[in-house]
Design a protein around this nucleic acid. Structure first.
Length: 367
DNA sequence: TACTGTTTATATACTC
DNA sequence: GAGTATATAAACAGTA
């Protein structure tokens, strides 16, 4: 396979900052050659015929031509859009970023994505909407602007623990995902299906509610929520995610967690944000579809000092408190959160979805 | 009006 | 070959 024309070759262009990213990960694995190109391009005054040494090979190797480097740079990076988005989010100070920031992150690092923007940006938007591992966080009142912030679902775990950033072993999917009925776009197809469903209910048709879901794209995984569920059933085991006291459009559930309501409250006057994690007990009665009253809630407050985003990202929360970044970054913190919430230890089965290692091992990749 | 977000549809590649 | 993950295109609605 031609390494130049292959879609698996690229030259990272992470010249913007010193942050570790998958571009560096890629370059570290292919460092010698990419370093050669970099050195070559950075030393235009040098004799082009001058030979350079490779860190992995003390023997002299010929420098690549600029044409070669250009072709190399224009090749598509070996990372899926999901991995690129994940790293953009992961690399942001507060663990979430806007669509335009994601665009910028990708463009800044990969020359390939400075062209055909309409194509790949559409794919980015599609990936954000389609994949459950990405959740939308509405803007706070003091951070106006267009579009929401995008964050990673706390349960998405380490999607690329196999080290492959091109294809995940298994796609993170929220089970029993129920969308906001007000948000659900009802297509003519859905109307027909729903109409048939209602008929089937009254006529004892063999058509089952469980078997009549929204039409899925060929090749895509079947969605969990049926049309009738999204239209009529109460929300169960829901996981609300909202910012600045505005109920979010993002509603998702986890199969293994009790009902949890997560709220992000931003307090402009104190330059700090309070993250409130409310726990609503899952009611086993009424088919588990009934909520207990808010009086039963246990609330968890944690103040985030926004003046030190690095602290926000990297400091472990005290025992008994929960922070979304720590949940993402460490299973231990999640354990404490879970046991506090549920009153018993998290099962290993559940923790399987919250891998200790996040998407990228910064320690390894930053070396 | 451009941007953002959702959804559907289709194609391709990969895994089992 | 079936199922799954991803890429791409496109239509459309909502919004700053």
């Amino acid at each position: 396979m031609d390494p130049i024309t292959s879609s698996y070759s690229l030259i990272p262009t992470n010249e913007i900052d010193g942050n570790t990213n998958i571009a560096e990960l890629w370059s570290s694995n292919n460092g010698s050659y990419i370093q050669q190109i970099t050195n070559h391009n950075n030393n235009n005054n040098m004799n082009n015929n001058m030979q350079q040494t490779s860190p992995n090979n003390p023997t002299l190797v010929p420098p690549p031509s600029l044409a070669y480097a250009r072709r190399y740079a224009a090749s598509k990076p070996p990372y899926s859009y999901i991995s690129l988005i994940t790293h953009a989010i992961n690399g942001s100070p507060d663990g979430m970023c806007t669509l335009s920031q994601i665009y910028q992150y990708i463009q800044d690092r990969y020359a390939y994505y400075r062209q055909n923007q309409q194509r790949w940006q559409n794919s980015i938007r599609h990936s954000l909407s389609f994949n459950d591992c990405f959740v939308k966080v509405p803007r706070s009142a003091d951070r106006p602007g267009k579009g929401s912030f995008w964050a990673l679902h706390p349960d998405s775990g380490n999607m690329f623990e196999n080290g492959c950033y091109l294809r995940r072993q298994k796609r993170f999917k929220i089970k029993d995902k129920i969308k906001d009925p007000n948000k659900t776009k009802i297509t003519n197809k859905d109307k027909i299906i729903n109409s048939n469903l209602n008929k089937s209910h009254s006529s004892s048709s063999p058509l089952s509610e469980n078997t009549i879901g929204r039409m899925d794209s060929p090749g895509s995984s079947p969605r969990q929520a049926t049309v009738s569920e999204s239209l009529s059933l109460p929300l169960t085991q829901q996981y609300y995610h909202h910012y600045s006291q505005i109920p979010t459009q993002t509603t998702y559930s986890t199969e293994s967690m009790p009902l949890i309501k997560t709220e992000y409250h931003h307090n402009p006057s104190s330059s700090s944000s309070s993250v409130i994690y409310s726990h609503q007990t899952y009611d086993p009665n009424n088919n588990g579809l009934q909520y207990l009253t808010p009086e039963h809630n246990q609330q968890y407050f944690h103040t985030i000092d926004q003046s030190s985003p690095s602290t926000f990202l990297h400091q472990l929360a005290p025992p008994g408190t929960f922070r979304i970044d720590n949940l993402i970054n460490g299973q231990q913190d999640f354990k404490s959160f879970y046991s506090t919430m549920v009153g018993h230890e998290a099962t290993s089965n559940f923790l399987d979805t919250t891998n200790t290692n996040y998407y990228y091992n910064n320690t390894n990749s930053s070396s």
